[in-house]
Design a protein around this nucleic acid. Structure first.
Lengths: 346, 346
DNA sequence: CTGTTAGCGCCTTCAG
DNA sequence: CTGAAGGCGCTAACAG
């Protein structure tokens, strides 16, 4: 710990500790002369107030806890960045806990029991560290109601859902609707869709968007065009093969994530189907790699930064005891690249 | 702050605060009976010791600060994860500061002045929070000597170099040597190399590895095979075109990062050069996208987790006042995929 | 404008 | 085996 304290400063500057505190915090006017003297000593000794003592006294830490299910999962860093962006502005600090769920239990999110104790521990330690609130960042959008109990401390969930607390999410349904609208605008009518696992919230929501578009734009509704994938490239690959074997092929495929879109591309390349000339493809998530594929794929960008920012913003409000105002749900943005073209007339 | 303190517990359990403290910390034997009584009250009131008070008293926080130049840059999360992995084991907590350099100043790392104050502030606040040490995570390997002053507190740099303190890096030279050795083993002799900007340490180190391989394996040394890129895909693209216009084409290209390897692939696809049949390509970094390209590209994986782990480990030693032992430098691992084949005989 | 002082919640020595 | 009490470094009355 830094050895020098307020007392030492006071002694050296020939003032009382109170005065030092006042110049430090600007809580009261101090004669220019003395102030400068104090400041000089502070400078000389490289003094920095002991935050632990301050917190103890002030009963405020200006610190929030962030629990990330896994910082190495693609969506998390950008959300943290958003939290940070906002926290910086309100002079809040971040105590980060990384649950390392991906490494510890893989993708078995349904088995809550396998990670509840990790979360509980994290909360407990954060609470002990006197955080004023918590942001919980999930790695996959799902319902987390009842996962943790913060004993009344404010908490905001980011990138996941909960029924009892506040959670910040992006507008999944709107996103897939927008993707479809774009495809339609390009002239597509027969549009295949490769979904994620159907027990997941994003899959359902994105499907809603798809369905809404099918209805509104009066597209042919053909169940054969709807394929259930599992988020992995493999499934994109096989389902594309199925789609292309249909009597009436789709002219475009919307994959519910970029990874499956890669599967689509692999299948296409194998079948000598050229993208986007013979088949248009859209992904979802705007993963980094989507910009490096050949062709670069058109996809929906997730408003991750905004999710983090809003989460922090709402949390700050709650900490201040104000009612968190419901802001409009952050929306995805279509990133137009090279994997979509107008269908060729045959 | 949690309202209930040790005093309340003591009162309710009909013991002194000292006793509560003893059962909490196991600092002394307490009669089973009383212990259980105390524990019960603690449980009932959901009591958690106030860490600020503990720290103040104990003069230990069990917390280290992590300063990340930018958490959204690809290498950083995995390093944080490594730090975490190690910190967990020693029951240390992490106070994360995200400098957000990429968003704030882009890639202008040479202009130290533009971000020194961010770093200084971060250190200052961390010090005030009584961290016992600091890990600084750079976003690009470079010499950071003199960037910050921690006033004697232990600091370890990860993923960057420094002359005055301890820094953890991976073995860049060995990595590119190994990449070359692999290419040679596959039968390549004329191997083109596309470097990063030549004022960067990794470029120089990776070039050393290349050169060492050229010498040891007695490959034809042809300056025309050496191209200076700038880490971006564009440069990979143009330099590949140059390489392929040579009278004697290379049969393989080693790009000093995966991004430039994408440029190589774009150029190849445009020139109807098939990878890996007509040209082998290797990347560097094992970026996520390298596994999604078609073909999936062979690349060198960076030991990011290990770097973080070692950094934390060394820091812990320094905090304990022990001399940090120099461990062997973490090494890259070759990830064999589909972009390298043996050259065809003509 | 400045100083004195009582705690914040906890740990720990000393005394029983 | 248990309790009383001082003090960690700082803030904020209260008093001058």
């Amino acid at each position: 710990m830094s050895e020098v304290g307020i007392k030492e400063i006071a002694a050296r500057a020939n003032v009382s500790t109170a005065t030092v505190s006042y110049v430090l915090n600007g809580t009261r006017n101090v004669k220019l002369n003395t102030r400068e003297r104090v400041l000089r000593v502070i400078e000389e000794l490289n003094y920095r107030p002991n935050n632990a003592a301050q917190s103890l006294k002030r009963k405020r830490t200006n610190t929030i806890g962030v629990i990330a299910e896994d910082v190495t999962v693609f969506n998390v860093p950008e959300i943290i960045d958003g939290i940070n962006d906002c926290a910086d502005k309100m002079d809040m600090h971040i105590l980060l806990t990384n649950l390392r769920l991906d490494k510890r239990i893989g993708r078995n999110f349904d088995q809550t029991d396998r990670y509840r104790h990790f979360a509980d521990n994290a909360v407990s330690e954060l609470l002990s560290k006197q955080v004023e609130g918590i942001v919980y960042i999930g790695v996959h959008p799902r319902d987390l109601t009842g996962l943790i109990d913060t004993l009344g401390k404010p908490i905001v969930y980011a990138y996941c859902y909960t029924q009892s607390e506040i959670s910040i999410q992006y507008h999944d349904e709107q996103a897939s609707y927008e993707a479809m609208a774009y495809l339609v605008k390009k002239g597509h009518k027969r549009i295949g869709i490769i979904s994620g696992t159907m027990d997941s919230i994003p899959s359902r929501l994105r499907f809603n968007g798809y369905y809404k578009a099918v209805t509104e734009f009066e597209l042919p509704f053909d169940p054969q065009l709807i394929k259930m994938g599992n988020w992995e490239a493999e499934s994109g690959y096989w389902l594309t093969k199925e789609l292309m074997e249909l009597d009436e092929r789709p002219t475009a495929i919307l994959a519910m994530n970029d990874v499956m879109a890669v599967g689509v591309m692999r299948a296409a390349s194998e079948m000598n189907v050229q993208i986007p000339r013979d088949l248009s493809v859209m992904g979802f998530d705007n993963r980094e790699f989507s910009d490096y594929l050949i062709p670069r794929i058109t996809t929906m960008d997730l408003p991750l930064h905004e999710i983090g920012y809003q989460a922090m913003d709402s949390l700050a409000l709650m900490i201040k005891g104000e009612q968190a105002v419901r802001k409009p749900m952050p929306e995805c943005k279509l990133i137009e690249r090279d994997s979509v073209a107008s269908p060729r007339l045959r």
